[in-house]
Write a protein that binds this DNA or RNA. Structure first.
Length: 586
RNA sequence: GGCGCUGUAGCUCAGUUGGUUAGAGCGCCGCCCUGUCACGGCGGAGGUCGUGGGUUCGAGCCCCAUCAGCGUCGCCA
């Protein structure tokens, strides 16, 4: 007798005796004959109860999700009763001995159907939700992705090195999770937002090639593709160029996709930040489809249309977007689309429908046939399409057009979940201006090296300076970013100074790090990929929680454990913490 | 914090213009059934329509408030 999984038995196993352990997936009771589909991670096997065996009377009372140990003869199913939908469908097990290892209550939702239960309920009973095929599949794919990543880097002589979870708080960036210290009243550890400085220190330490499947934590509000606790494939290497990092990471992802999904990925597109914004209105363009944007202010030079006129006079831009098949929309539907654009930040939207019987437009009086022809030429729109126009300050117009491009792509069915469009975005601007304070902030992080030859701009025009920073993008998701780092201490100090930090502040916050640069830091750079997002796309899911075993919900609660939860007074006292009552709501 | 969507049976949902006793599928319970695999047949139980208030002769449906979930903007060096 051999213990087998519920997905293992084949015709060749007929006439052997097997032991199966698993859950009752479904019972079919024919009165004089009972079938049970027994389930484990590996699959389903039909087990049969015949009245001639004593197990039959036990089987009459089985319910879904009861846990069984069944021993019996494997036999070929009678001709005509094979089930081609099951891997084990040629055989069944005639149960001679049945042990009911545990009973199950009626579950709060059905395990054996695909239908989605309410997510809060799924999360509350996550251990039941995880029994379902979809989640077993997703977590299996996730495992294979991580395994492939480790294998890939192991073959290339990278070392996986663990870095601490309890580290020093660093200013700026995302909000930190803090862990109060018992031994040092008033002081806290921070949980890492990423192992950024630690991996750079490993380069300084001479490890040369580092990788880690690293947990990162950021105390920010949740999104469909963001979880407060997430996993990165963290990579760093010494004596490398930007292209070497990009080539390596591209190879990694092509390796992962081939091994996990058996899909060949063509070479990644590489776009500069400026190109990405001009062509797609985004620094994370979805390249599964074209629909490139077209700058169109010049088309409307001299236009009497007040909206366009004032935008052009103020140096703004009119950006055109093709909507395939959009001419079929009714006025009401165009109005709804306009509202959608406004929710995404548009001041307004002008639409032009290229109908069979001429053009229609929301700005009919100001749109002439030559305008439409030129816009159609630039956006490659054809009769039957619509053209959407967004006029605003340059950045705002491209941003809105880019978001609407994604929406139009969705409506036109261009966002297939079995298509994978990877690309790199390079040449990011080094600085962003904080709209609230007006202060320059690093677009990535302050350890990023400026573009070669652009150091001088730091003195003259820092906002024009570009960074040796790069993002990896997949189907419109930012799945990773990295940079070549600064390895010269004086340059690092100069960056901090530009960011408005005094030497005292630098010493207090980054002293250990800048000091390390003083001791022969090699040139180095790297990248970190978002494992959860990658798994999400590979699983054709649209929510990151579907590829995480025990995620928090949108308001950062674990509804299964009910965390966070109030800490006992004693524990707080040990941590020197006193609660400050929050302001009561009116 | 803002905006949007959702909330009706254990689960997934329908519920018309405000009008009699709020429905369906699945699940659950009972009985029958020896080749099913989403087995089938017969019967049954199960509802504070998220919560509170209001309008009305009458509210699942309209109005106000509130709670929860999801999505999104802000935020995410």
């Amino acid at each position: 007798m051999t213990r087998r999984s519920c997905g293992a038995l084949r015709a060749a196993d007929a006439e052997t005796v097997a032991e199966l352990n698993g859950w009752v997936h479904r019972r079919r009771d024919h009165g004089g004959l009972i079938f049970v589909d027994l389930r484990d991670r590996d699959g389903l096997t039909q087990i049969v109860f015949d009245p001639q065996h004593t197990a039959f009377s036990q089987a009459e009372h089985l319910r879904n999700e009861d846990v069984l140990r069944a021993v019996g003869r494997v036999r070929k199913r009678p001709p005509g009763t094979e089930n081609p939908k099951l891997a084990t469908g040629e055989v069944e097990v005639e149960v001679q001995e049945l042990e009911i290892l545990n009973r199950s209550q009626v579950p709060p939702f059905q395990i054996n159907v695909e239908e989605n239960a309410d997510e809060n309920l799924r999360l509350e009973y996550r251990y039941l939700d995880l029994r379902r095929t979809r989640m077993q599949r997703n977590l299996t794919i996730r495992h294979r992705i991580i395994k492939a990543m480790r294998d890939f880097f192991d073959e290339r002589d990278f070392l996986e090195i663990e870095t601490p979870l309890l580290i020093k708080r660093t200013p700026e960036g995302a909000r930190d999770y803090l862990v109060p210290s018992r031994l040092y009243p008033g002081s806290c550890y921070a949980l890492p937002q990423s192992p950024q400085m630690l991996k750079q220190l490993l380069m300084i330490a001479g490890f040369g090639r580092y990788m880690q499947i690293a947990r990162c934590l950021r105390d920010e509000d949740q999104r469909a593709d963001r979880q407060l606790e997430f996993t990165q494939l963290d990579v760093e290497m010494s004596f490398c160029t930007q292209d070497e990092v990009l080539d390596l990471m591209e190879s990694c992802m092509r390796f992962v996709w081939k091994r996990v999904l058996d899909v060949e990925i063509p070479p990644f597109a590489r776009l500069t930040f400026a190109e990405a914004v001009e062509r797609y209105g985004s620094d994370k363009p979805d390249l599964r489809f074209g629909l490139e944007l077209a700058a169109s202010s010049d088309v409307f030079a001299g236009s009497e249309f007040l909206v366009f006129k004032s935008v052009i006079e103020n140096g703004g831009e009119i950006v055109a977007l093709r909507y395939p098949g959009g001419a079929a929309l009714s006025r009401r539907e165009f109005d709804a689309l306009t509202e959608e654009a406004k929710l995404l930040g548009a001041k307004g939207m002008v639409w032009i429908a290229l109908g069979e019987d001429g053009i229609k437009s929301s700005a009919q009086r100001f749109i002439e046939q030559p305008h439409a022809d030129e816009l159609a030429r630039r956006t490659q729109a054809q009769r039957g399409d619509a053209i959407l126009l967004f006029a605003d300050a340059r950045d705002a117009a491209y941003a809105v057009a880019g978001k609407m491009r994604v929406e139009v792509g969705r409506r036109a069915g261009l966002r297939r979940d079995d298509a994978y469009a990877f690309c790199f975005i390079t040449d990011f601007p080094y600085l962003e201006i904080d709209p609230e304070t007006g202060k320059p902030m690093p677009a990535h992080h302050p350890f990023t090296s400026p573009a070669p030859g652009e150091w001088d701009l730091i003195e003259t025009d820092p906002v024009r300076m570009r960074a040796q920073q790069y993002d990896m993008v997949l189907n419109g998701y930012e799945i990773g970013s990295g940079s070549i780092r600064i390895h010269k201490p004086e340059l690092q100090r100069r960056i901090f100074e530009m960011l408005g930090m005094t030497p005292e502040q630098v010493e207090a916050q980054f002293g250990f790090f800048v000091r390390a640069l003083d001791y022969g830091a090699p040139p180095h750079g790297g990248m970190a990929l978002g494992v959860d997002r990658i798994a999400m796309v590979a699983c054709a899911e649209e929510n990151i929680r579907e590829v995480i075993a025990f995620p928090k919900n949108q308001v950062a609660r674990d509804v299964m454990m009910d965390a966070p939860s109030p800490a006992p007074e004693k524990a707080l006292r040990e941590l020197h913490i006193q609660q400050i009552p929050s302001k009561p709501k009116n």
